[in-house]
Design a protein around this nucleic acid. Structure first.
Lengths: 112, 112
DNA sequence: TTTGTTGTTCGCAAAAATACGAACAATTTT
DNA sequence: AAAATTGTTCGTATTTTTGCGAACAACAAA
């Protein structure tokens, strides 16, 4: 953990930040969009979509799994991945609430 | 830049990832929520909200500014910050489209 | 002019993220 | 049993992120 454990961030901020961090790389965005458009697919198919080595793809998949956005299941000799729709919805709600601020139509008052 | 310059990510994926990365830390989420709820405020007020040193706050603000989500203006002896609503809306649209996948009501088919 | 207030920048350290090739494990095919 | 296929894990290197204190700059106040 990098940011000090000194309490002081709210649970919701931490959750939102965790999801955001998981989305914070083009490869992971691409993976999620791909999986969301399909239904399920195996590692190899995902790898084919990306311009990076398979070891790296594996790492990105692990991060998305840690964040709860995807799941994997072994189906020898393949490994299938798919969106975890339950958490997907939670994330969507968090982001929805976040962006949905009251004052969206205010112009930026300062800062020319 | 960490991810290889080897083309292959779409503009939209890169933009979305950039915004997501900016949101990928609780401190930055807290800053944005605070600014969004106000209108404008100065560095010191933001610093008071956070459990980290001012040098670190300054860094986070710089990152949010780089991402285009906030703006700053000098008003000696203060520096005011506020949301850049124009880019805020762009980001909201990007995220909205991203989460809004057709198949949200499908159960996860695989991966038990 | 000296002092105080307000933020940024610098220098540094530690940790995390990104990426790759090679080695490995598991299963299937031959 | 040997060989091929499919992914993960290991070891390593590089870059980026996070964080802090101290020094600095700009302006205001005394």
């Amino acid at each position: 953990m990098a940011y000090t454990q000194s309490t002081d961030y709210r649970e919701e901020e931490i959750n939102l930040a965790r999801f955001a961090k998981a989305l914070g790389h083009p490869a992971r965005i691409a993976i999620l969009k791909y999986l969301a458009s399909l239904d399920t697919c195996c590692f190899g198919d995902i790898h084919k979509e990306l311009p990076i080595a398979k070891a790296t793809v594996s790492q990105h998949l692990a991060e998305l799994k840690d964040a709860g956005l995807i799941r994997g299941s072994i189906a020898p000799p393949r490994v299938n991945y798919c969106i975890d729709w339950e958490n997907w919805k939670k994330a969507r709600k968090l982001f929805g609430d976040f962006w949905e601020t009251e004052n969206n139509d205010r112009p930026s008052p300062c800062c020319q």
